[in-house]
Nucleic acid binder design. Structure first.
Lengths: 114, 114
DNA sequence: CCATTGTTTGCATAATTTGCCAAGGATGCC
DNA sequence: GGCATCCTTGGCAAATTATGCAAACAATGG
């Protein structure tokens, strides 16, 4: 990274990717993206981890600018800051499909060879 | 993650995201996405790290199914396995723009308040 | 044989990440 | 006030990851 500008750009992108790079956090974003806002308690139930752990994941996603929270009484609801995040995750789905297809092709070629 | 199926899905996605969640690897993918295939030596030059370090990043991206390599003489060229990866990174760009816009709005609100 | 280009391994160090427990707010109810 | 609920945070230990460096190894091409 000779260029300092490129370095900053790459770091900013990597930060967002890092925020998403965990099964639990992917699951949270997917869930909210499909079903709308959720409170911490429900997420905790569905994830099956300690409340504190879930809360940490949520605050991390919030710090990354992917989620925002809204208090209602004692419960806190988290939601996506932008629909573009759901779109982004759909793009990831395409990558996975392509990867799978590619792996299949490689397997077939290996089996079918003489 | 009560459902085992969801867990696997989330893990698969997180793996790809993790592969990309590093400034150097983001930079590599961006570079190739914009300028086409690159050999290790050129990437090493532009990144400014040890050859072994760059090689490691590349093999990680390859393991994740995002890059493939092609030998030509003694040099090895890496390229994206799929254009959908470039599309995916464009989606990330949208997320960053939205994030920035949101931060700007929050700042304006904070300054403009009475 | 020798140079070039990459890969891999081993190692040491540093930094990051993760998850649970326990303690600490904040809010609402009686 | 007393108490339960919902969530956040600090502390801490374990595991993972990143990096550079050195060295060995492999493949290719004069």
């Amino acid at each position: 990274m000779v260029d300092e500008q490129d370095k900053l750009r790459a770091t900013a992108r990597a930060e967002v990717l890092k925020a998403l790079a965990h099964p639990t956090r992917v699951y949270i974003v997917d869930l909210i993206s499909r079903e709308g806002p959720h409170c911490v308690c429900e997420l905790t139930d569905r994830i099956g981890a300690d409340t504190s752990t879930v809360s940490r994941h949520l605050s991390l996603l919030k710090s990354a600018g992917l989620l925002f929270d809204r208090k209602e009484g004692t419960t806190v609801y988290y939601d996506l800051t932008c629909d573009c995040i759901a779109d982004f995750m759909s793009g990831l789905e395409s990558v996975l499909r392509a990867r799978h297809k590619r792996a299949q092709a490689a397997f077939s070629a290996a089996v079918g060879k003489d």
